[in-house]
Design a protein around this nucleic acid. Structure first.
Length: 468
RNA sequence: GUCCCGUUCGUCUAGAGGCCUAGGACACCGGGUUUUCAUCCCGGCAACAGGGGUUCGACUCCCCUACGGGAUGCCA
């Protein structure tokens, strides 16, 4: 224990590249990152690609790119377990030589049958150690198993959960080396945590029951013990771990949907953790205020509406320039160049609260840039009737005679027309709004007209007039 | 089945025996501001899983039950 206190804190995020970076993984990485940073420690990444079947380079790339895109870059170059085979094999040998492992030649069929029998007998299915004292030598179809102590218990000291006790009798002799000689997850994981000088393991709760097994491997290898924090899982609305069935799970989907990285991180951090009544946190706030001891024990349901709200908060905190820069890629999706508007600053500042995502704002910006207008049928049928058409042609005339095209003049003209004809304001304004933007949603009308400019405004009114 | 973890408003959470007629936020529902939408402001709805203990007193401590999750792989 003293040893841990003396060492520099080192945390790691150890994903296996079998899919794109999952939002739950981002949260795990975030907590690891923040914990390391607030202790002046190191945050590392390790790619656990020992499953040759399912590991894909493209996923590894996605995970690494996603992490750095959201600001959770590691302090050292990530390592790949697939490239460190000899280290694990050496460790396995050491365990074997110390008498804490043995070769086992049980076939898959034998094992299946054993498990089935145990289940039928109402017992926990686990390897019964039948090869343990056979003194088998390594051969083509042998695996190396850890000789787990049969009695006693292992106490996992978990920062979040306290002491969790496991009886050794509940644990079976796990496989260290497969029959093809390749190392398994538990071995690699333990060896690498040691090799990378990891001090603190922060990972999902699904690993809690793996921990005593890994501690046995550590003990067999003579490694020092680690600090653990098992995070509650991120759940879907049905309380099962969040999966594609529930919602988007990969980070890149949220990013392309127009959520700010800082808002995503904020949402994830608040899932299972809180600090007073504060809701909005940036990474620097987390480094200052986060306390891993305060993390909740129960799983937390991921709620997109909270993300939406937090995103509006983070969006509102952006400076105009920041917002413009963040908007650009989303605008490009519509082939829009932000600078093509004659007063993009006024435009963006008028439209910045139109939607709670970047992609939503970009989409709302389309009428201001593109010639094609998408008319909202409902709005058309509600406001563009005979009366609406008359109003439009009247206003077209009136507006064309306004030469100093500014918000104040336009508002006055609109107001005069409306009071002269004793019309309710929306009756007058909505048809114009629809003519300009295709819908009834826009900033105040005088401003909207300014944003479109005189020519375009009149054009669009004509266009709607012709259409009807 | 067995082992492990968990259980406060629909959701995220505050609550470390009296501060709780249980607080905040999101969502939702009303109302207001706004020429529309959004923003913003105000208000409302809504929870301690159940049962036993311990205690003068339990959301808080202990036990049981129920429910949920995780683990039980030559996956990680």
């Amino acid at each position: 224990m003293e040893k841990i206190l003396m060492n520099k804190v080192v945390t790691r995020f150890a994903p296996s590249p079998t899919g794109t970076l999952h939002i739950g993984g981002v949260r795990t990485a975030l907590f690891n990152y923040v914990y390391a940073k607030q202790n002046n420690g190191l945050f590392l990444i390790r790619i656990e690609d020992t499953d040759k079947e399912r590991s894909k380079k493209e996923f590894e790339k996605n995970i690494l790119d996603s992490l750095s895109s959201i600001g959770l870059s590691p302090d050292e170059k990530p390592i790949n377990q697939s490239e460190r085979n000899n280290i694990y094999v050496k460790a396995a040998q050491k365990i074997y030589e110390s008498g804490n492992a043995y070769w086992c030649d049980c076939s898959k069929e034998t094992l299946d049958k054993m498990r089935k029998d145990q289940e039928a007998a109402g017992k926990k299915p686990m390897y019964d150690g039948r090869s343990r004292n056979l003194g088998l030598k390594q051969s083509e179809n042998t695996v190396l198993r850890l000789a787990t102590p049969e009695d006693g218990e292992i106490i996992v000291k978990d920062i979040i959960r306290g002491e969790v006790v496991f009886q050794n009798s509940e644990l079976d002799d796990l496989i260290l080396l497969r029959s093809d000689g390749s190392p398994t997850y538990h071995l690699c994981n333990v060896v690498d945590d040691y090799e990378q000088k990891v001090t603190t393991v922060i990972r999902g709760e699904d690993h809690l029951s793996n921990t005593p097994r890994q501690i046995h491997i550590q003990n067999a290898l003579g490694y020092p013990s680690l600090e653990y924090a098992h995070l509650p899982l991120v759940l879907g609305p049905d309380k099962k771990r969040l999966s594609k069935r529930h919602a988007a799970t990969s980070l890149e989907e949220y990013q392309s949907d127009g959520y700010l990285d800082s808002a995503i991180l904020n949402t994830l951090a608040r899932l299972g953790w809180s600090k007073g009544d504060q809701e909005v946190f940036y990474i620097k706030d987390l480094i200052k205020n986060f306390n891993i001891n305060d993390v909740q024990k129960a799983g937390a349901v991921f709620d997109v509406s909270k993300l939406d709200w937090l995103n509006t908060q983070h969006l509102a905190n952006l400076t105009l320039d920041e917002l413009k820069n963040k908007l650009r890629p989303y605008l490009e999706n519509f082939n829009i160049n932000l600078e093509d508007h004659f007063d993009e600053d006024l435009l963006i500042s008028s439209m910045r609260s139109s939607s709670n995502t970047l992609s939503g704002i970009a989409s709302d910006l389309k009428p201001y840039y593109l010639d094609e207008i998408e008319y909202d049928d409902k709005a058309i049928s509600k406001f563009v009737d005979d009366v609406g058409i008359n109003i439009l042609s009247d206003l077209k005339e009136i507006l064309s005679n306004i030469f100093d095209w500014n918000e104040k003049n336009l508002d006055i003209a609109l107001k005069n027309y409306q009071s002269e004809h004793e019309l309710p304001i929306p009756k007058v304004n909505q048809p114009i709004r629809i003519a300009l933007t295709g819908s009834t949603r826009s900033p105040s009308l005088g401003l909207t007209l300014v944003l479109f400019g005189k020519d375009k405004s009149l054009d669009r009114i004509s266009k709607l007039l012709i259409k009807n």
